[in-house]
Design a protein around this nucleic acid. Structure first.
Lengths: 305, 305
DNA sequence: GATCAATTATCATTATTATGATACAAAGGT
DNA sequence: ACCTTTGTATCATAATAATGATAATTGATC
């Protein structure tokens, strides 16, 4: 009645083998069976898919079109077969992790080659990630937002502060004097005159910082727009300029003196970061290993002090 | 015995519907049939794929993994169904064309939206294109090379000359004087001192031009390496500098005075361009239409004059 | 041009798969 | 607590598909 997917598989084998007999051997079915499948498919489509020359079957135009259409997805489907027999053996697992690009670059990137399993990193927005986690598309997410699905689990593991930083050569004395006097309006005006770095996609941090500390909308544009936050760190290190970034991204750089932490703001902006997982997962070991790396890189911050 | 693709299709329907009954309705088969398929798949894989809670089937971990693996290719395969009933109706055809990037940009790009059928352009090397044409992956190729497959057809339709051009402001008098005296060695030395443009991928034209006209290997590097030949034309237009390019790419620009054709060389370098098609094709009309555009854009050159 | 080798088509038989009818189970409403 | 609704599992039977044996076809070879 309808289209049978087995017909397509047989069709592909015939196309690639050039004969019914060959296809039959490849598929471990009988030659009449192959013939039958092909007839069914041709009857269903209403077109002859091969020209029967005695020694081999030559695909017709329409046969070629169909082959090119089904070849790739069919191959992928057939490879699903491995997927079943896999994880019982000592094959490498593949786990999918969602997080923001900067987090990946700062934490996981350098370790990725050392892990004894395959990893797929996906970037995207957090609600989408939570949804994908629930559906099994992702196995682990790093997120500042929690979801409410009952079969998901969100464990806090670190905090990030959104702070004002500057390049190592930047003269921050005037600002610090103003802040000491609690002259926030003066600080705001002084800061507006400085060199600012931001990312193309995300000026949220800066906007939020400005709003919360100066109670005003951000009314100037950053001087340098760079591709991502790691670029900001590289640009600022040992140079002059300001930016608003999550603290962990430049912890090392500040330690080394290339950058300076200037101000945490009047009221501190702090996000809790969670590991999101499904409660039931077949990749518990792999996930722990990843989590361990995150715990080390984004060390249990003693911010609360 | 083996994995039956119909099981996967049924599995997908169960996953999406959440019940066997729903899946059965979606697939227009009986509910016991769906049950049977699922049992077979579970027996084959060796894992339970759904937890049977009374009102609905909840996918297990492994069920999720499998679903995410098969969802996309299965969807694509099922959409092949349309493909059969299509071209009899008034659906838009899709034809695939292979050519080099520059040719596409110069000729077809501006017309592509006006065509009443879908187009896929593929770039690549010519032997590969010829192979893909034979296999039905491409329906038309624009190539300076012919193949020898018996079911392919190569019709010449235009010629391209590889010529020396310069920006409109470039002072070419010294060169023209030297060429008039047939002082090729002098011309070569003069040219080496000029500003040169070339593409990243392809310095073949320049090398070949140099070799044929000065009988020497190219022993200097172009000053500007740009992404493609159209960039060369844009860079040179109304400016100074030299390049070696196929003539048709800058015919308009030369007409308008933005560039000048400086020298065609001692012995003219000319490639014949062919339309390559399969002798049997279901897209004869569409192909003619494309060919007409090419014939107009790369007008039957009266080079021979 | 007769024979050989290789392949496809046909067909009666066998094996597999799908179906309808129905029993069974669980949740929701009254 | 009972009934209704919704859904799954089971089973004998009907429908379908696969198989082996074999005939028919074609190109190649001598």
């Amino acid at each position: 009645m309808g289209l049978n997917l087995e017909w397509l598989r047989t069709f592909k084998a015939i196309y690639e083998q050039g004969t019914l007999t060959g296809a039959a051997q490849e598929l471990f079915i009988s030659q009449p069976g192959v013939s039958l499948h092909l007839n069914s498919l041709e009857a269903y489509t209403g077109y002859k898919l091969f020209d029967r020359s005695a020694k081999k079957l030559v695909p017709t135009e329409r046969g070629k079109v169909i082959y090119n259409f089904i070849e790739e997805p069919l191959g992928k489907l057939e490879s699903a077969e491995q997927l079943f027999h896999k994880s019982t053996k000592t094959e490498r697992a593949t786990i999918s992790i969602g997080m923001c690009f900067e987090t990946f670059q700062y934490t996981l990137e350098k370790y990725i080659a050392t892990l004894p399993f395959n990893i797929i990193i996906k970037f995207g927005d957090y609600p989408q990630m939570i949804h994908d986690l629930d559906k099994g598309l992702l196995d682990l997410i790093i997120t500042p937002q929690k979801g409410d699905q009952t079969n998901l689990e969100f464990k806090p593991f670190s905090k990030e502060r959104i702070v004002l930083v500057a390049g190592g050569k930047t003269d921050t004395q005037p600002l610090k004097a103003l802040l000491k006097k609690k002259d926030y309006s003066g600080a705001e005006n002084w800061l507006k005159e400085q060199l600012w770095y931001s990312t193309a996609a995300d000026t949220e941090h800066l906007k939020r910082f400005w709003q919360l500390n100066f109670r005003r909308h951000l009314d100037f544009k950053p001087n340098y727009i760079v591709p991502n936050m790691s670029s900001i760190v590289r640009c600022l290190s040992g140079e002059t300029g300001f930016s608003v970034v999550p603290d962990f991204l430049c912890a090392e750089e500040i330690e080394a003196g290339g950058m300076q932490l200037v101000w945490e703001g009047q009221s501190i902006i702090e996000n809790t970061l969670y590991f999101g997982t499904r409660k039931k997962t077949m990749y518990a070991d792999e996930i722990s290993r990843i989590q361990e790396i995150f715990r080390q890189m984004m060390h249990p911050l003693t911010h609360g002090s």
